[in-house]
Design a protein around this nucleic acid. Sequence first.
DNA 1: ACATAAAAACGTATGACATACGTAGTTTTA
DNA 2: TAAAACTACGTATGTCATACGTTTTTATGT
Lengths: 256, 256
Amino acid sequence: MTTRDDRGSDLQRSLALLWAGRSRGKRGPRPRLTAEQIARAAIRIADADGLEALSMQRIASDLGFATMSLYNHVASKDLLLEVMVDVAAGKPPDLGGASDLRPAVRRWVAALWAGFRSHPWLLRVPLDHTPIGPNQLAWLDRLLRPLLGAGLAAGEARAAALHLTAVVRGTAQISLDMGSAHKTDGGRPRTEAELVLALSDLVTADDYPALAAVHAAETADHGAEPLGEDALPAELAFGVDRFLDGIEAWTAERTG
Amino acid sequence: MTTRDDRGSDLQRSLALLWAGRSRGKRGPRPRLTAEQIARAAIRIADADGLEALSMQRIASDLGFATMSLYNHVASKDLLLEVMVDVAAGKPPDLGGASDLRPAVRRWVAALWAGFRSHPWLLRVPLDHTPIGPNQLAWLDRLLRPLLGAGLAAGEARAAALHLTAVVRGTAQISLDMGSAHKTDGGRPRTEAELVLALSDLVTADDYPALAAVHAAETADHGAEPLGEDALPAELAFGVDRFLDGIEAWTAERTG
DNA sequence: ACATAAAAACGTATGACATACGTAGTTTTA
DNA sequence: TAAAACTACGTATGTCATACGTTTTTATGT
């Protein structure tokens, strides 16, 4: 009967692992390894080589321990992933108490975007349930504050927060994820540019009128894209700004 | 030297597989198996038992063939996934030629949502590059039409389409994905309700004021939620409507 | 007609991986 | 001071994608 067997609900273990301020008063040898240590090593690996390079064996050998020793501190790889996500999320940004909705949301969105940018593997971790980690909830809380402050009802604020979270996550997935851990193809990496090129033959104005039109117009201009390192990409900013326009109009009508 | 070895760019193979109207004039025995057949079997499996139940062995045995025979028609599992995604996407909905932006977008969003609802595994397929399948591009094209029709510039339409795609995908991931292929936990499935309950102890108004407030307000009302089977969930509809408000205001200002 | 080369189906083999289980050693508590 | 609980470790198992070789089938060039 080792620890692993007296598993109460997997849920309990998740929560305990994510929240508990390590109990530590038990018997046994002094642990030379902690869950946090493992999670940090795992994050380092995922950051460097992508999620598909993350194996229990790799983590263990990076830490100089035997593979199975990890399981004394982490119930399963799935659980480890959950911990990694919350740890990597870190503390949410400070949005300034100012009740100004737009800049607060903009900052929150930019911070989340930056998070996905620096930990692209976050986008690949399968979401099995509502966020339950303390950090993830803190991010949500921070976003809800300005939304409630702007006069949205509880349900509306929840919906708006969901919307914003979803946009950033989805946009990152579509336009950012592919950069990381690129599968190389027989040695030569496949770039997006290469792809677009190969596609242009297939995307005829006949079958895809709107798409072809947009593509044509885009390759025409093509000058703009100053874009600081951690600023919002234009594609994301436009959508968020339009959404905020809508939210502001909504609250204006309500309070007015 | 079998077929597998003369691989040109993996890209070419993807595109060929997705687009080519099967050439078929070669030598060899009449194939008793086709890529499409394989993809459909795979989709059936993923629909029924989730992505993690999808193995090449399972597909083969379902079809009554040896595992390795699949590789005569599909270069790799990754490639098969790409094909599955495009096939499962199917043809985009008809939005009616009407130039009315809002209902068109609403219908498109609802259709995409329904797609994720019936093929939840779509949300788990890692996105390695821009969509390149004919069906996926068709969906994009369909969405771009009303956006361009409403007077958005090419870049704006592209950004708006990205935004909408991302919202639906992200929202589905956050609030829908977890329903599918639920990992059971020692026999008893872990429900979302169970989770929320366990969390309410941890989410104190002290540490998470906004979150606690929203949660309190939500459990207070709680009456609404008529929601037809394929209608948009309220959480998604609110965000989309606010976004459309913003878009309409934007174009109004532009054309006015 | 026939030889040949390409491609299909199949079986076996390999190497990665998560993780179950047993053992030996260590530390705290009774 | 003995037992209980827990650590680290090694080995073993089962699953998976997929490389490779063999046999069989069929269209093509002679």
